[in-house]
Protein backbone atom coordinates (compact mmCIF):
# COMPACT_ATOMS: atom_id res chain seq x y z
CA UNK A 1 0.00 0.00 0.00
CA UNK A 2 1.55 3.29 -1.02
CA UNK A 3 1.40 6.40 1.09
CA UNK A 4 -0.92 8.12 -1.36
CA UNK A 5 -3.41 5.27 -1.37
CA UNK A 6 -3.63 5.04 2.42
CA UNK A 7 -6.35 7.69 2.91
CA UNK A 8 -8.43 6.05 0.18
CA UNK A 9 -8.11 2.64 1.80
CA UNK A 10 -9.08 4.16 5.12
CA UNK A 11 -12.07 5.85 3.50
CA UNK A 12 -13.11 2.50 2.01
CA UNK A 13 -12.87 0.84 5.41
CA UNK A 14 -14.83 3.65 6.99
CA UNK A 15 -17.52 3.40 4.32
CA UNK A 16 -17.83 -0.36 4.78
CA UNK A 17 -18.01 -0.03 8.55
CA UNK A 18 -20.50 2.83 8.30
CA UNK A 19 -22.62 0.71 5.98
CA UNK A 20 -22.62 -2.17 8.45
CA UNK A 21 -23.51 0.07 11.40
CA UNK A 22 -26.26 1.73 9.36
CA UNK A 23 -27.75 -1.64 8.46
CA UNK A 24 -27.77 -2.50 12.14
CA UNK A 25 -29.52 0.74 13.07
CA UNK A 26 -32.11 0.36 10.31
CA UNK A 27 -32.84 -3.23 11.32
CA UNK A 28 -33.10 -2.20 14.96
CA UNK A 29 -35.58 0.52 14.01
CA UNK A 30 -37.60 -2.02 12.02
CA UNK A 31 -37.02 -0.31 8.68
CA UNK A 32 -36.34 -2.19 5.42
CA UNK A 33 -32.65 -1.30 5.00
CA UNK A 34 -32.22 -1.48 1.24
CA UNK A 35 -35.55 0.13 0.39
CA UNK A 36 -34.66 2.96 2.80
CA UNK A 37 -31.29 3.61 1.17
CA UNK A 38 -32.92 3.43 -2.28
CA UNK A 39 -35.51 6.04 -1.28
CA UNK A 40 -32.71 8.32 -0.05
CA UNK A 41 -30.65 7.97 -3.22
CA UNK A 42 -33.75 8.51 -5.37
CA UNK A 43 -34.77 11.54 -3.32
CA UNK A 44 -31.32 13.11 -3.55
CA UNK A 45 -30.31 12.38 -7.13
CA UNK A 46 -33.21 10.64 -8.90
CA UNK A 47 -34.51 13.50 -11.01
CA UNK A 48 -33.51 16.94 -12.21
CA UNK A 49 -35.66 18.50 -9.51
CA UNK A 50 -34.00 16.31 -6.90
CA UNK A 51 -30.54 17.23 -8.18
CA UNK A 52 -31.44 20.93 -7.98
CA UNK A 53 -32.66 20.51 -4.42
CA UNK A 54 -29.36 18.81 -3.62
CA UNK A 55 -27.50 21.71 -5.19
CA UNK A 56 -29.54 24.11 -3.07
CA UNK A 57 -28.44 22.21 0.05
CA UNK A 58 -24.86 21.91 -1.21
CA UNK A 59 -24.52 25.71 -1.45
CA UNK A 60 -24.81 26.58 2.27
CA UNK A 61 -22.89 23.44 3.20
CA UNK A 62 -19.91 24.38 1.04
CA UNK A 63 -20.02 27.99 2.20
CA UNK A 64 -20.07 26.95 5.84
CA UNK A 65 -17.49 24.24 5.19
CA UNK A 66 -15.11 26.80 3.70
CA UNK A 67 -15.89 29.14 6.58
CA UNK A 68 -15.16 26.42 9.14
CA UNK A 69 -11.83 25.58 7.50
CA UNK A 70 -10.70 29.10 8.44
CA UNK A 71 -11.67 28.74 12.10
CA UNK A 72 -10.38 25.17 12.37
CA UNK A 73 -7.08 26.47 10.96
CA UNK A 74 -6.84 28.65 14.07
CA UNK A 75 -7.87 25.78 16.37
CA UNK A 76 -11.31 27.23 17.04
CA UNK A 77 -14.40 25.10 17.56
CA UNK A 78 -16.82 27.49 15.92
CA UNK A 79 -20.02 25.69 16.83
CA UNK A 80 -21.83 28.98 16.37
CA UNK A 81 -22.05 28.67 12.56
CA UNK A 82 -25.70 27.73 12.90
CA UNK A 83 -26.49 31.00 14.64
CA UNK A 84 -24.29 32.94 12.21
CA UNK A 85 -26.37 31.56 9.30
CA UNK A 86 -29.54 32.60 11.11
CA UNK A 87 -28.22 36.10 11.80
CA UNK A 88 -27.18 36.43 8.15
CA UNK A 89 -30.68 35.44 7.10
CA UNK A 90 -32.21 37.93 9.54
CA UNK A 91 -29.99 40.78 8.31
CA UNK A 92 -30.71 39.90 4.67
CA UNK A 93 -34.44 39.77 5.29
CA UNK A 94 -34.31 43.04 7.20
CA UNK A 95 -32.42 44.73 4.37
CA UNK A 96 -34.53 43.27 1.55
CA UNK A 97 -37.92 43.94 3.12
CA UNK A 98 -36.88 47.54 3.58
CA UNK A 99 -35.90 47.76 -0.10
CA UNK A 100 -38.43 49.22 -2.48
CA UNK A 101 -38.33 47.22 -5.73
CA UNK A 102 -40.49 49.76 -7.59
CA UNK A 103 -38.30 52.81 -7.30
CA UNK A 104 -34.91 53.94 -6.08
CA UNK A 105 -32.10 51.49 -6.51
CA UNK A 106 -31.91 48.89 -9.27
CA UNK A 107 -32.89 45.40 -8.07
CA UNK A 108 -29.35 44.04 -8.55
CA UNK A 109 -27.97 46.60 -6.14
CA UNK A 110 -30.72 45.86 -3.63
CA UNK A 111 -29.79 42.21 -3.79
CA UNK A 112 -26.07 42.93 -3.46
CA UNK A 113 -26.83 45.10 -0.44
CA UNK A 114 -28.97 42.32 1.01
CA UNK A 115 -26.17 39.77 0.64
CA UNK A 116 -23.65 42.24 2.06
CA UNK A 117 -25.97 42.77 5.02
CA UNK A 118 -26.19 39.02 5.54
CA UNK A 119 -22.38 38.76 5.62
CA UNK A 120 -22.33 41.62 8.13
CA UNK A 121 -24.92 39.86 10.30
CA UNK A 122 -22.90 36.66 10.42
CA UNK A 123 -19.71 38.64 11.05
CA UNK A 124 -21.19 40.49 14.02
CA UNK A 125 -22.53 37.27 15.55
CA UNK A 126 -19.18 35.49 15.08
CA UNK A 127 -17.19 38.42 16.46
CA UNK A 128 -19.38 38.34 19.54
CA UNK A 129 -18.37 34.72 20.15
CA UNK A 130 -14.77 35.59 19.25
CA UNK A 131 -14.56 38.46 21.70
CA UNK A 132 -16.12 36.37 24.44
CA UNK A 133 -13.20 34.01 23.82
CA UNK A 134 -10.38 36.52 23.52
CA UNK A 135 -11.53 39.05 26.11
CA UNK A 136 -13.81 37.03 28.37
CA UNK A 137 -12.14 33.60 28.35
CA UNK A 138 -15.45 31.94 27.50
CA UNK A 139 -14.78 28.92 25.29
CA UNK A 140 -16.28 29.31 21.83
CA UNK A 141 -18.13 26.01 22.17
CA UNK A 142 -20.33 27.50 24.89
CA UNK A 143 -20.64 31.01 23.50
CA UNK A 144 -21.31 29.68 19.99
CA UNK A 145 -23.92 27.23 21.18
CA UNK A 146 -25.63 29.79 23.40
CA UNK A 147 -25.66 32.34 20.58
CA UNK A 148 -27.21 29.71 18.28
CA UNK A 149 -30.19 29.48 20.59
CA UNK A 150 -30.31 33.26 20.94
CA UNK A 151 -30.30 33.75 17.15
CA UNK A 152 -33.06 31.18 16.83
CA UNK A 153 -35.08 33.00 19.48
CA UNK A 154 -34.57 36.33 17.75
CA UNK A 155 -35.73 34.93 14.40
CA UNK A 156 -38.82 33.38 16.02
CA UNK A 157 -39.60 36.64 17.76
CA UNK A 158 -39.29 38.58 14.49
CA UNK A 159 -41.46 36.09 12.59
CA UNK A 160 -44.18 36.05 15.22
CA UNK A 161 -43.81 39.69 16.19
CA UNK A 162 -42.55 42.72 14.30
CA UNK A 163 -42.25 41.00 10.89
CA UNK A 164 -45.39 38.87 11.07
CA UNK A 165 -47.59 38.50 8.04
CA UNK A 166 -50.34 41.05 7.75
CA UNK A 167 -53.31 39.77 9.70
CA UNK A 168 -51.85 36.79 11.48
CA UNK A 169 -48.51 35.54 12.72
CA UNK A 170 -47.57 32.15 11.31
CA UNK A 171 -44.82 29.64 11.90
CA UNK A 172 -44.54 29.32 8.13
CA UNK A 173 -42.49 32.50 8.09
CA UNK A 174 -42.68 36.14 7.10
CA UNK A 175 -44.35 37.44 3.97
CA UNK A 176 -42.67 36.40 0.73
CA UNK A 177 -40.33 38.98 -0.80
CA UNK A 178 -41.11 40.75 -4.05
CA UNK A 179 -40.02 38.60 -6.98
CA UNK A 180 -37.65 41.36 -8.16
CA UNK A 181 -35.63 40.76 -4.98
CA UNK A 182 -35.09 37.07 -5.62
CA UNK A 183 -31.66 35.95 -6.76
CA UNK A 184 -32.05 35.74 -10.56
CA UNK A 185 -32.60 32.29 -12.09
CA UNK A 186 -30.91 32.37 -15.48
CA UNK A 187 -31.94 30.47 -18.60
CA UNK A 188 -35.37 29.45 -17.37
CA UNK A 189 -34.02 27.18 -14.64
CA UNK A 190 -36.20 26.87 -11.56
CA UNK A 191 -33.28 27.86 -9.30
CA UNK A 192 -30.72 30.63 -9.16
CA UNK A 193 -27.11 29.67 -9.88
CA UNK A 194 -25.75 32.76 -8.09
CA UNK A 195 -25.60 30.92 -4.76
CA UNK A 196 -23.59 27.91 -5.94
CA UNK A 197 -21.20 30.19 -7.86
CA UNK A 198 -20.66 32.33 -4.76
CA UNK A 199 -20.11 29.19 -2.69
CA UNK A 200 -17.45 27.82 -5.04
CA UNK A 201 -15.77 31.23 -5.17
CA UNK A 202 -15.77 31.40 -1.36
CA UNK A 203 -14.30 27.92 -1.15
CA UNK A 204 -11.49 28.76 -3.60
CA UNK A 205 -10.86 32.00 -1.75
CA UNK A 206 -10.65 30.28 1.62
CA UNK A 207 -8.32 27.62 0.22
CA UNK A 208 -6.06 30.31 -1.24
CA UNK A 209 -6.10 32.26 2.03
CA UNK A 210 -5.13 29.24 4.10
CA UNK A 211 -2.57 27.67 1.76
CA UNK A 212 -0.95 30.55 -0.04
CA UNK A 213 -0.91 33.65 2.16
CA UNK A 214 1.09 34.83 5.15
CA UNK A 215 -2.20 35.20 7.02
CA UNK A 216 -2.79 31.46 6.56
CA UNK A 217 0.66 30.75 8.00
CA UNK A 218 -0.02 32.94 11.03
CA UNK A 219 -3.30 31.10 11.67
CA UNK A 220 -1.37 27.82 11.59
CA UNK A 221 1.08 29.35 14.05
CA UNK A 222 -1.74 30.36 16.40
CA UNK A 223 -3.19 26.86 16.18
CA UNK A 224 0.15 25.22 16.88
CA UNK A 225 1.16 27.39 19.79
CA UNK A 226 -0.64 30.53 20.88
CA UNK A 227 2.00 31.36 23.51
CA UNK A 228 4.80 31.27 20.97
CA UNK A 229 2.69 33.38 18.62
CA UNK A 230 2.28 35.98 21.37
CA UNK A 231 6.02 35.98 21.89
CA UNK A 232 6.62 36.70 18.20
CA UNK A 233 4.15 39.58 18.28
CA UNK A 234 1.61 37.81 16.08
CA UNK A 235 -1.26 38.93 18.35
CA UNK A 236 -3.21 35.66 18.47
CA UNK A 237 -6.26 37.41 19.89
CA UNK A 238 -6.60 39.61 16.81
CA UNK A 239 -6.04 36.67 14.49
CA UNK A 240 -8.68 34.64 16.26
CA UNK A 241 -11.09 37.53 15.80
CA UNK A 242 -10.14 37.78 12.12
CA UNK A 243 -10.69 34.05 11.59
CA UNK A 244 -14.02 34.24 13.40
CA UNK A 245 -15.00 37.28 11.36
CA UNK A 246 -14.21 35.63 8.02
CA UNK A 247 -16.03 32.49 9.08
CA UNK A 248 -19.04 34.45 10.29
CA UNK A 249 -19.22 36.52 7.12
CA UNK A 250 -19.28 33.41 4.92
CA UNK A 251 -21.82 31.67 7.14
CA UNK A 252 -23.96 34.81 7.15
CA UNK A 253 -23.73 34.88 3.36
CA UNK A 254 -25.08 31.34 3.36
CA UNK A 255 -28.05 32.62 5.37
CA UNK A 256 -28.54 35.49 2.93
CA UNK A 257 -28.54 33.09 -0.02
CA UNK A 258 -31.11 30.91 1.74
CA UNK A 259 -33.36 33.97 2.08
CA UNK A 260 -32.80 35.57 -1.32
CA UNK A 261 -32.27 32.43 -3.37
CA UNK A 262 -34.32 29.64 -1.83
CA UNK A 263 -37.06 30.51 0.66
CA UNK A 264 -37.57 34.16 -0.40
CA UNK A 265 -38.61 34.90 3.18
CA UNK A 266 -37.46 34.37 6.74
CA UNK A 267 -38.66 31.07 8.18
CA UNK A 268 -38.12 29.57 11.65
CA UNK A 269 -34.96 27.45 11.91
CA UNK A 270 -33.83 28.74 8.52
CA UNK A 271 -30.31 27.50 9.26
CA UNK A 272 -31.75 23.98 8.85
CA UNK A 273 -28.89 22.26 10.69
CA UNK A 274 -26.54 23.22 7.80
CA UNK A 275 -24.06 24.64 10.30
CA UNK A 276 -23.78 21.43 12.31
CA UNK A 277 -23.77 19.30 9.14
CA UNK A 278 -20.94 21.43 7.75
CA UNK A 279 -18.87 20.75 10.89
CA UNK A 280 -19.38 17.03 10.26
CA UNK A 281 -18.41 17.48 6.60
CA UNK A 282 -15.18 19.25 7.57
CA UNK A 283 -14.41 16.49 10.10
CA UNK A 284 -15.12 13.89 7.39
CA UNK A 285 -12.77 15.65 5.00
CA UNK A 286 -10.31 15.59 7.94
CA UNK A 287 -8.51 18.78 7.08
CA UNK A 288 -8.17 18.07 3.37
CA UNK A 289 -9.44 21.01 1.35
CA UNK A 290 -9.73 18.84 -1.78
CA UNK A 291 -12.01 16.34 -0.08
CA UNK A 292 -14.29 19.02 1.38
CA UNK A 293 -16.55 19.66 -1.67
CA UNK A 294 -17.05 15.91 -2.09
CA UNK A 295 -17.97 15.53 1.58
CA UNK A 296 -20.38 18.49 1.35
CA UNK A 297 -21.99 17.06 -1.80
CA UNK A 298 -22.43 13.65 -0.22
CA UNK A 299 -24.00 15.14 2.89
CA UNK A 300 -26.27 17.31 0.73
CA UNK A 301 -27.54 14.18 -1.07
CA UNK A 302 -28.23 12.50 2.29
CA UNK A 303 -29.96 15.57 3.70
CA UNK A 304 -32.22 16.07 0.68
CA UNK A 305 -32.84 12.36 0.17
CA UNK A 306 -34.01 11.85 3.74
CA UNK A 307 -36.80 14.40 3.31
CA UNK A 308 -38.77 11.70 1.45
CA UNK A 309 -38.56 9.20 4.29
CA UNK A 310 -41.55 10.28 6.42
CA UNK A 311 -43.83 10.19 3.38
CA UNK A 312 -42.77 7.00 1.63
CA UNK A 313 -41.65 4.80 4.53
CA UNK A 314 -42.99 6.59 7.60
CA UNK A 315 -39.50 7.00 9.04
CA UNK A 316 -38.04 10.09 10.70
CA UNK A 317 -35.98 12.26 8.35
CA UNK A 318 -33.22 12.49 10.95
CA UNK A 319 -31.72 9.37 9.37
CA UNK A 320 -29.51 11.72 7.31
CA UNK A 321 -27.90 13.03 10.50
CA UNK A 322 -27.51 9.48 11.81
CA UNK A 323 -25.69 8.40 8.64
CA UNK A 324 -23.46 11.47 8.69
CA UNK A 325 -22.51 10.87 12.32
CA UNK A 326 -21.83 7.18 11.73
CA UNK A 327 -19.63 7.99 8.77
CA UNK A 328 -17.50 10.50 10.68
CA UNK A 329 -17.17 8.15 13.68
CA UNK A 330 -16.13 5.18 11.57
CA UNK A 331 -13.62 7.36 9.76
CA UNK A 332 -12.17 8.43 13.13
CA UNK A 333 -11.90 4.76 14.04
CA UNK A 334 -10.34 3.78 10.70
CA UNK A 335 -7.80 6.57 11.03
CA UNK A 336 -6.88 5.58 14.59
CA UNK A 337 -6.94 1.80 14.32
CA UNK A 338 -4.05 1.42 11.90
CA UNK A 339 -1.07 2.63 13.91
CA UNK A 340 -1.99 0.45 16.88
CA UNK A 341 1.33 -1.36 16.60
CA UNK A 342 3.48 1.62 17.49
CA UNK A 343 2.15 2.88 20.74
CA UNK A 344 4.14 5.59 22.41
CA UNK A 345 5.72 5.31 25.84
CA UNK A 346 4.39 7.75 28.43
Amino acid sequence: MTRRAAPLVRAAWALAAAFAVTLGILLAAGAPPFATLAVMAEGGLGSQAAALRTLAAFTPLLLCGAALCVTFAANLWNIGVEGQITMGAIFAQGCLRAADPAGGLPAGLDLALGLAASALGGLVWALLAGMLRTHGRVHEIFSGLGLNFVAMGVSLWLILGPWKRPGMASMSGTETLDQALWLPALGGRPMSMVGPILAVAAFVGAAWLLRRTFFGLTLAAVRQNALAATRLGLRPGLRILAAMGICGALAGLAGGILVAGLYHRLIPSISGNYGYTAILAVLLASGSLLALPAACLFFAVLTVGSVQLPLSLSLDSSLAGVLQGVLVLTLFAARRLRPLSRRREP
Binding site: I25, L280, D316, S318, G321, V328
Partner: peptide, 20 residues
Protein backbone atom coordinates in the same frame (compact mmCIF):
# COMPACT_ATOMS: atom_id res chain seq x y z
CA UNK B 1 -13.77 17.07 22.00
CA UNK B 2 -14.21 16.05 18.36
CA UNK B 3 -15.70 12.64 19.18
CA UNK B 4 -17.90 14.13 21.88
CA UNK B 5 -19.24 16.75 19.53
CA UNK B 6 -19.94 14.25 16.74
CA UNK B 7 -21.66 12.00 19.30
CA UNK B 8 -23.82 14.95 20.40
CA UNK B 9 -25.20 15.39 16.89
CA UNK B 10 -25.30 11.67 16.15
CA UNK B 11 -27.18 10.70 19.32
CA UNK B 12 -29.67 13.50 18.88
CA UNK B 13 -30.52 12.41 15.33
CA UNK B 14 -30.47 8.76 16.31
CA UNK B 15 -32.89 9.50 19.15
CA UNK B 16 -35.34 11.19 16.75
CA UNK B 17 -34.96 8.35 14.24
CA UNK B 18 -35.31 5.43 16.63
CA UNK B 19 -38.01 7.20 18.63
CA UNK B 20 -40.22 7.85 15.62
Amino acid sequence: LAVGFVLTLFCRELAYFMGH
